[in-house]
């Protein structure tokens, strides 16, 4: 037994179950990297004819006039209107969701009774589990026409008369409608991460602040929030990543016009939306352009996500919770 082990040790070691096991797991691990790389490379290669022809115009041009050719690039592809649509709806979503999420996180970690806190956390995490098409359906057939439309009319007729980008006439499905519904979808992520970060505030510091006579608000403002700020920024960027990539709910609610509107109460289109809506209809050159839009979206979201995770990691936050949402 020992003798054979020594004489053929080298050959045997290659076949040891541990080695095989390690290689199998390593392939699985490397697979994740390979898939990500394959995704980026294969799509970029497909989109290249359009990207190289348009250059920066692909991002800065606002004329999207698809050609119908099967072999060459004859149309004009400037995706600016969709980039703007994605950014504006995401911006609206964050502007609504982040203050709300931070407030809820503050309440849960600093003010709520334990049982209420647990219940709230659970409820809001369930909100994250609602499929986006259900948000879209609800927004399309109920929330936007019934609840939001009257509100938008009022705003457009009052504030809209002198504040830019809030003017009428209101179109029912628009940037604002998509942004608001999107905020409901983004809020749970921002909330979950903010809560984790705030929960990490050392109890001793909070106790010390109370001992000095600080009110609850003063503790939040001078102890909890300053420590949590980088984490909240990270959470916001994670939320941004989610908002940028959301497709169906936005496509259903943004209005579907291919222009850059002069008011948030008018229709537009997002990057993900234009892909979902026109992909099946498109001629080959148009497909290449849409894949290009996908690559652009991919790059933007990946950069945002990487930055978010680096920030949260660097500040010792705990992002794992968000994965499961």
């Amino acid at each position: 037994m020992a003798a054979t082990g020594i004489s053929s040790g080298r050959r045997r070691r290659l076949l040891r179950p541990d080695e095989i096991f390690r290689v199998v797991l390593g392939v699985a691990g490397a697979g994740v990297l390979a898939i990500l790389a394959t995704m980026l490379i294969s799509t970029t290669v497909q989109a290249w004819p359009v990207l190289s022809r348009e250059g920066w115009g692909f991002v800065t041009g606002s004329v999207w006039d698809p050609g119908t050719s099967r072999s060459e690039i004859t149309g004009e592809y400037g995706a600016l209107a969709f980039v703007v649509g994605t950014l504006v709806t995401s911006g609206i979503a964050l502007a609504v969701a982040v203050p709300l999420a931070v407030a809820v996180a503050l309440y849960i970690t600093q003010a709520a009774p334990r049982r209420v806190a647990a219940g709230l956390t659970y409820t809001i995490e369930l909100l994250a589990a609602v499929p986006s098409v259900v948000f879209g359906l609800w927004g399309l057939l109920f929330f936007v026409p019934t609840v939001l439309r009257p509100l938008m009319d009022v705003v457009a007729n009052t504030l809209g008369t002198f504040v830019p980008f809030l003017g009428g006439p209101v179109v029912t499905y628009n940037y604002f409608a998509a942004g608001i519904v999107l905020s409901f979808m983004v809020m749970p992520i921002v909330m979950a991460v903010s809560r984790e970060v705030m929960a990490g505030t050392p109890v001793t510091e909070i106790g010390a602040a109370y001992a000095l006579g600080a009110t609850r608000w003063e503790v939040m403002r001078h102890v909890v929030l300053p420590r949590a700020r980088p984490g909240i920024i990270g959470a916001t960027m994670l939320g941004l990543g989610r908002a940028l990539g959301e497709t169906i709910a936005v496509a259903m609610l943004i209005g579907g016009s291919q222009q850059i509107p002069s008011s948030v109460f008018r229709g537009g289109q997002s990057m993900a939306g234009i892909i979902a809506v026109t992909f099946q209809e498109a001629a080959p050159e148009n497909v290449k352009a849409l894949i290009g839009v996908g690559v652009l979206l991919f790059v933007i979201t990946v950069v945002v996500n990487m930055a978010a995770r680096l920030i949260v990691w660097a500040t010792g936050g705990y992002v794992a919770k968000e994965q499961s949402l």
Binding site: G26, G29, A30, V32, L33, I35, L36, T38, M39, S42, T43, L238, G241, R242, L244, G245, E246, T247, A272, I275, A276, F279, L290, I291, G294, V295, L297, F298, T301, V302, V304, N305, M306, R309, V319, Q323
Partner: peptide, 23 residues
């Protein structure tokens, strides 16, 4: 490989689902 895999798995959670469809 481990930290790389870990980081890019994180990144992959943020890939827009429509992009996966395109791919």
């Amino acid at each position: 490989l481990s930290p790389l895999i870990r980081f890019f798995t994180d990144v992959m959670t943020g890939v827009p689902s429509i992009f996966v469809g395109l791919f």
